[in-house]
Design a binder for these strands. Structure first.
Lengths: 140, 140
DNA sequence: GTGAATGCAAACTATTTGCAAAGGT
DNA sequence: ACCTTTGCAAATAGTTTGCATTCAC
């Protein structure tokens, strides 16, 4: 049994076919997906699945910190499983691949500096890198 | 004449009353504003102003890099004039004040490290800090 | 005077909600 | 059996577009 389903169960939520379907699609993807992009393949696992349920499942998984929203300049967002983007991530503008990176501790001195500079108490931050992944970079 | 209006004119766009109204509101604000939040006060300067025109003006100003979109976890966005947030910014979750900070060159080593680590060619990045500004921090 | 800009209404996209039926435990 | 979850339809929020009128240049 996979981790996300396990988290669902432990939190007292029911493990239903529609939810399994959404989770399976998320687990297979190495990239972020829009709700629509989740719906289509997930229907192979649950024929009756509706977009509404995809939204509801994503909201639930999000509250359990199993998936994360991915943000863009234009405002539309996608979802990727947290395991994929536990900390900070880079998004390929071409294939939508999402890759986590480490080393964002390097931000800490900056955050402290900002607090000193602006008087802000920084509670959270959003750092998203956009570019081309190795594969898309090579094929351009 | 202010800088934004000047930019409009130089780019060959007409300086109309509705546009002036939107610009005036943006210039007065030290914080980000939603289109609705721009509409209401701007109507004092241009009675007939419609929300549609606010959107169109913001899109135009955005393309001229006179305003910038501000992003949030929940996806809704606001706008602030570029002068206010030329580089990176911190947003107060309480009063919505937007404060620019400097020193984000500190990111460069991280970006290079990410390129080496992931193979990505990083083209752009989004860094937004959220927290409490000094004023709101004190009054809590 | 002429083409750009505006305002209205309507379309559109993304997302959420009410409610009866279905399904997991 | 009970209560959560689902799917449909409809509502909602935010934003964009078509088109005739208005206005800056």
């Amino acid at each position: 049994m996979n981790e996300i389903v396990e988290t669902l169960r432990k939190a007292g939520h029911r493990v239903t076919l529609p939810r399994r379907a959404v989770v399976r699609v998320l687990l297979q993807a190495e990239r972020w997906l829009s709700p629509e992009e989740i719906l289509t393949p997930a229907r192979e696992y649950c024929h009756s699945l509706s977009l509404v349920t995809v939204y509801r499942t994503l909201a639930l998984l999000s509250s359990l910190d199993c998936v994360r929203r991915i943000h863009f300049e234009n405002g539309c967002h996608g979802y990727a499983r947290t395991e994929l983007v536990h900390g900070h991530y880079a998004v390929c503008r071409d294939c939508h691949r999402v890759v986590e990176f480490t080393g964002s501790d390097a931000l800490n001195p900056l955050l402290e500096q900002v607090e000193a500079q602006t008087g802000f108490l920084v509670e959270s931050h959003m750092l998203e890198l956009v570019g081309l992944c190795a594969a898309c970079h090579d094929s351009e």
